[in-house]
Design a protein around this nucleic acid. Structure first.
Length: 543
RNA sequence: GCGCCCGUAGCUCAGCGGAUUAGAGUAUUGGCCUCCGAAGCCAAGGGUCGUGGGUUCGAAUCCCGCCGGGCGCGCCA
């Protein structure tokens, strides 16, 4: 254990245990630097538990822990102080605070990654668009979120699978097929004979034109259309820099008998019953509002049966943690899937899998909401966004908000190649460091020997502090499946660097100081690059 | 009607397992390039944290009501 925060926490926790109390030590960064580097309100919490004055408890903690803290080398006797109603504040030794700079340099690309690797198999399922049209902005948000969440989980040493599930049969595909056939016969949306709720986008015409077989052969048209749209979605995903490990076909669940098996398993456990010609599942036993139909009176299954069958395969494939990324418009399926799995009695934990639900995206341009895309007809596509603002901006913007908040994508702002654009702001910081190194022209390896104690400025301390926080920021973001933490962190690190850069010269004549500052800059560059990589954005050396 | 989510500066949003003076960006205003990239920096103004109660020594943060917005409540997927 070398992280001063961990040392501090364990020493405090030990003392609290001796007091016979159980409060958890929660350390935080005080906003006000006068309150030191770490602060805890644990004395105020203990006040309730021990029925003593918080200030007295804090004083006791101070006298009881100072020796051990000084012994560990992280602070001095004067570094521990009590303030306000009973806050326990600690000021760390300056050198301790600079250590993360070397750590970032030593670990390089791995800085921010967990030290211990776990073999836990986890899966992130996202996008999962049906092959009935181009990907829309909502899919874009899922792609950006899902890929970043997967990267975050990988950073914690997990064995991550990125999976895309899609329905290659069923009613929607029939509708697609009929739309293509109608187009091929010269019909247009709205004409008499155009299929009800047919797909109206321009891409339908492309498919109809490209199809060379017998248009009356619905099977052939369907296969062609699905293959065509799958290829198109893949092209967009590639342009977006997202790769999947597994594409799972809904149809395979039927052909492999997995859907029937689920229904049979429910039946064997007495969880189903016949009513009004349909088969029902007793989901109310697991807290659902009402029982759900699993087999319609026409003999076909409702959509949620294959959903459950699909999730059962995830469990059987050994994924201990599964994160499904979906739009909030699907949130009713969350309960159904979980309940359906519970009803199988397969030993799946309650509340499995995890869901990240995101609100939909509103695209603004020129002060107006953009609703239509030429190609798709009724919605803005991922391709539109990439064409308008570039891949990096799309990805950064789409992960820069909490998933469950509505998102207004300002195309004009994202197009802006200036200080107004947060993507460029972060990338610019990276390019700036690179530029300094290009001018310096020395050997990066020499930086490991830099005399960091020469970094005595407040801005340097602030940068070192941010660099030190990176690993914890990553692990928290991974645990919470919250990539926006990374976007905010990057913004802050870039801001601190720009501020430093404007205030101090890096390439000074004093060689010791120069090397120390370069070491700091190299750590900043590495951290920026690692963070950008987690959210799928490039870290250019020049721009 | 019921369920879930959201309501923080003009605008877009962080913070929400309670705590020492509510934060960014943008917009507005005023400064900074004979000097490592001004795609940058520094500074100022701007908020009764939707609203009314409650719990607490202490609430943007926890609980309840109300108002406003989103989504969902199919033998559609």
């Amino acid at each position: 254990m070398s992280d001063p925060k961990d040392i501090l926490r364990s020493i405090l926790q030990e003392e609290i245990r001796k007091l016979g109390a159980s409060s958890e030590v929660h350390l935080e960064r005080p906003r006000n630097p006068e309150h030191g580097d770490w602060s805890t309100n644990v004395a105020l919490q203990l006040a309730k538990e021990l029925k003593r004055k918080p200030r007295d408890i804090a004083e006791h903690l101070k006298t009881a822990t100072t020796d051990a803290l000084v012994e560990s080398g992280i602070t001095t006797p004067a570094g521990v102080s009590i303030a306000g109603p009973g806050f326990y504040n600690v000021k760390l030794n300056p050198l301790i605070k600079l250590r993360p700079i070397l750590e970032a340099l030593e670990r390089g690309k791995d800085y921010g990654q967990a030290l211990a690797s776990s073999d836990e198999k986890v899966q992130v399922e996202f996008v999962s668009a049906n092959p009935t049209g181009p990907l829309h902005v909502g899919h874009g948000r899922q792609a950006a979120l899902g890929d970043a969440i997967a990267a975050l989980l990988e950073s914690q040493g997990h064995n991550v699978t990125r999976e895309f599930y899609y329905n290659d049969g069923g009613a929607q595909i029939d509708k697609l097929t009929r739309s293509v056939q109608a187009r091929a016969r010269g019909l247009r949306p709205g004409d008499t004979g155009w299929p009800e709720e047919g797909y109206a986008g321009e891409y339908i015409e492309d498919i109809a034109r490209e199809f060379k077989g017998n248009i009356e052969d619905a099977d052939a048209v369907r296969r062609f259309a699905v293959q065509y749209l799958r290829a198109e979605q893949d092209t967009d995903l590639r342009a977006f820099g997202v790769k999947f490990d597994v594409y799972y076909l809904e149809s395979s669940l039927y052909t492999e008998g997995k859907v029937d098996a689920v229904v049979k398993a429910w039946g064997a456990r007495g969880k189903t019953y016949e009513k009004e010609g349909a088969l029902w599942l007793r989901t109310t036993e697991y807290g659902d509002d009402k029982d759900r139909v699993v087999r319609k009176s026409d003999g076909s299954y409702t959509y949620f049966v294959p959903d459950v069958a699909y999730h059962l395969t995830k469990w059987q494939r050994g994924f201990e943690r599964v994160v499904d990324v979906q739009g909030t418009d699907h949130h009713s399926t969350v309960t159904r899937v979980r309940v359906g799995l519970q009803a199988l009695g397969a030993g799946i934990p309650d509340g499995w899998p995890d869901y990240v639900l995101h609100s939909l995206v509103k695209v603004m341009r020129g002060g107006q909401e953009v609703k239509v895309s030429k190609r798709a007809g009724s919605y803005v596509t991922v391709r539109d966004l990439i064409d308008w603002v570039g891949r990096d901006a799309v990805r950064f913007f789409l992960v820069s908000r909490k998933a469950d908040s509505e998102f207004v994508f300002d195309v004009d702002l994202a197009r802006e190649k200036s200080d107004e654009n947060p993507v460029y702001y972060v990338q610019y910081a990276h390019a700036r460091v690179c530029s300094v190194f290009a001018q310096w022209g020395g050997e990066a390896g020499a930086l490991a020997a830099a005399k960091l104690e020469r970094l005595s400025g407040e801005r340097e301390a602030a940068l070192a502090r941010l660099i030190a926080e990176f690993p914890e920021t990553v692990s928290t973001a991974a645990r919470e499946a919250a990539p926006h933490d990374i976007a905010f962190y990057l913004r802050e690190l870039a801001a601190q660097f720009h501020s430093y850069y404007n205030a101090e010269r890096i390439l000074v004549d004093d060689e010791e100081l120069r090397m120390a500052r370069l070491a700091l800059c190299a750590a900043v560059r590495q951290t920026l690059a690692n963070g950008l990589s987690l959210v799928g954005v490039s870290a250019p050396e020049k721009m």
